[in-house]
Design a protein around this nucleic acid. Structure first.
Lengths: 197, 197
DNA sequence: TGACAAAGTGACCGATCGTGCTCTTTTTAC
DNA sequence: GTAAAAAGAGCACGATCGGTCACTTTGTCA
């Protein structure tokens, strides 16, 4: 059963790669099987259906996101230091780790936001968890802590700049996208931390 | 030939509607034909191929965007008044006119940003034109005019808030998304207009 | 080492995909 | 009003889709 787990992981990774490019619906099982050196029917020893694979892809991508973005930040002090690492890693996640396709979470969000069902529910739940984590860091930006509303406003703008960076970089071909995003985020941290209690 | 143009327009509108939901690749000609009350082969009297229809969809969506967002703003004075209308109409475009599916331009951007070809080139060109238009308005925010770099930073953040609003509203179910976006944009206009020359 | 389960193959199914063909109906222009 | 042209229907095509089944190979554990 050890062998099977490794193969399953390879399938999920390849499916995630292709989903970031063509969308979950656009991924054909034949292409995934080919890419990992398996027959199409071999895939079905690891997943009951295509939707079952979709769920595994979403879980896997969100897990990898946590590893790549949150884990390096966790070592830093709460508040600004941590938020700076999160932002930098978040940009890096989309720009480097998924350079060919763009951030798969954004692709999944746009694809699933109007497709009710367990897949959307799963993504929603994982994204809400992430949002709560970041909002908590925003509260710690100031002493006394920011209000919940103030922290949520910070998260809204932070995520906006992440999305804006991806759009500018990938669709508009803006070579300065990273600088623009970093500058906007720095200014956001400055004025948020300085807000009167 | 009048009749044909009307039918063609109906096909494009329906294809755009479905593309906003499932992506351009996910739109099947049979579904579009059904929805407009045509046979599948009847579609091919109006388009040479599916990709030909894709091009028409992109052109049409961008034209409609201009009508819905830029045209109402054009009547206002350049600078802040115009930018405020643009932002308000831009939010409204995604939230109301495409309530079921989300803004088709965002869906197209995410789908096409990693798919080189004439379709991506077309969308890129149209979006660059729009960007130039908005940047020009940002320059007029202050007297003396903002520098090109300052105005571009303004556009980057404005578009970020639009994207953030869509994500918050559609994927995260945030009922306050519009307020968050409007507040962030207002503050952006304030501090941009106040910047020292 | 032998037995049993897990992993993987190949052929095949019905459905649907985009598209070409021929033919009929409708619209347009003189 | 009539003829040419445009619009559309119906059918069939090869390819590909997700998925099943019977079978063989490989890995694991006692």
């Amino acid at each position: 059963m050890r062998k099977g787990e490794a193969t399953r992981a390879r399938i999920i990774a390849e499916a995630a790669r292709q989903a970031a490019l063509r969308g979950l619906t656009g991924v054909s099982l034949a292409d995934v099987a080919d890419a990992v050196g398996l027959s199409k029917s071999g895939l079905f020893k690891h997943f009951e259906s295509k939707e079952d694979m979709h769920i595994a892809v979403v879980e896997s991508v969100m897990d990898r996101f946590g590893e790549a973005v949150w884990k390096p930040a966790e070592a830093r002090a709460p508040g600004r230091a941590r938020l700076e690492v999160v932002f930098e890693r978040w940009l890096h996640w989309g720009e480097t780790e998924w350079a060919d396709s763009g951030c798969p979470i954004m692709a999944l969000s746009v694809e699933l936001d109007d497709q009710p069902g367990p897949l959307r529910d799963l993504l929603h739940k994982r994204l809400q968890g992430w949002r709560k984590t970041v909002v908590r860091e925003f509260r710690a930006l100031r002493d006394p802590p920011l209000s919940e509303a103030e922290a949520q406003a910070g998260y809204f703008q932070m995520k906006s700049f992440i999305l804006g960076h991806s759009d500018a970089r990938r669709m508009m071909g803006d070579a300065d996208a990273q600088r623009s995003a970093a500058a906007a985020f720095d200014a956001l941290l400055d004025r948020t931390a300085r807000m009167a209690a």
